[in-house]
């Protein structure tokens, strides 16, 4: 028996096409499959796994984490290094970007700065182990200049991690800041000058309000990088002490104690803390003007 379709009703294919679902839209499927299989599924699996601890009730891992200072302090250890590095990078990047935007040939500088980002934290750590060491060039130069009398300790403590994050993090922040600063219509600065604003007031009244949304995004992306600090915290820091960051705790739980449930729980806490900070910054960003940064309509 044939099923009769009312004539007034368009075919499924047409109805889907009306909602812009057709052959082209289906090109999305392989990528979606990858993300679902390799990101969403493992993430959900990890979440469930973290709720089935080796001992105790479903929340035992989380309770253990937030009652053990050795574990929950890793959050503060991580924030303690990632937030200052991110803020310092931004503070340094802004004036430098303002200077560099006046240069005609920025390519050389941007190329030099992209090198430490590309090499990554592991290589920078290996370099710093020698460079910042008691016999390294950094300490030698300071002694030679007469600034210090004996080598200062920069490795296997907070400052080693700080230096390595700054070296990979600052160029990242700078390059993004530069693209935001270059995006502000130069005519606005000229207009403000003809209206009597000097360099400081042009920055304060014109550039800063227009840059805040971009700088907030910039802060978030840089923070995401710095918050995930792992190899340099192990190699250059004190992985059992002041730079015991949350990534180390997660790794140890999963791969040294073979407690995948606890490892997943810490990993998820790490993601949540990071998203909380990002969310907070983005919420503040919403209080500012976020439209175009040019002085004329499209």
């Amino acid at each position: 028996m044939a099923i009769s379709i009312p004539a007034s009703r368009p075919k499924l294919r047409q109805r889907l096409a009306l909602r812009q679902i057709d052959g082209v839209t289906l090109l999305l499927l392989p990528a979606l499959l990858v993300v679902v299989l390799l990101f969403v599924y493992p993430f959900a699996y990890g979440l469930l796994l973290s709720l089935r601890p080796k001992v105790g009730g479903f929340a035992a891992n989380y309770i253990a984490f937030f009652t053990d200072p050795y574990l929950y302090n890793t959050i503060f250890a991580t924030l303690n290094v990632s937030v200052p590095v991110t803020v310092l990078s931004l503070i340094l990047a802004l004036p430098i970007a303002f200077r560099v935007r006046l240069l005609k040939h920025q390519r050389l500088l941007t190329t030099i700065l992209v090198i430490p980002i590309t090499l990554g934290t592991v290589l920078v750590a290996e370099g710093l182990l020698n460079y910042l060491g008691p016999q390294g060039w950094f300490n030698r130069t300071l002694i030679w200049l007469g600034l210090i009398h004996s080598p200062i300790r920069l490795l296997h403590n907070y400052w080693g991690v700080f230096a390595s994050l700054l070296i990979t993090g600052f160029p990242f922040t700078f390059l993004m800041t530069l693209s935001y600063v270059s995006g502000v219509d130069p005519a606005l600065e000229r207009a403000a000058a003809t209206l009597g604003a000097n360099a400081g007031r042009r920055f304060w009244h014109i550039f800063l309000p227009l840059l805040v949304p971009g700088l907030a995004i910039n802060f978030c992306l840089s923070f995401v990088q710095n918050f995930s600090v792992f190899p340099s915290a192990v190699l250059l820091g004190a992985p059992a002490g002041e730079t015991r960051v949350i990534a180390i705790a997660a790794y140890q739980a999963a791969f040294e104690h073979y407690d995948y449930s606890m490892g997943s729980a810490i990993a998820i806490i790490m993601g949540v803390v990071q998203l909380l900070v990002v969310g907070l910054v983005l919420a503040v960003r919403n209080l500012f003007y976020r439209g175009s940064t040019t002085g004329a309509k499209g």
């Binding site: 219509d185 005519a187 606005l188 000229r190 207009a191 403000a192 003809t194 209206l195 014109i206 309000p209 227009l210 500012f288 003007y289 439209g291 175009s292 940064t293 040019t294 002085g295 004329a296």
Partner: peptide
């Protein structure tokens, strides 16, 4: 001096 710009250069914010 007062100046009027080609693209107006109004402060968008």
């Amino acid at each position: 001096f007062g100046m009027v710009f080609q693209n107006y250069a109004l402060f968008p914010h």
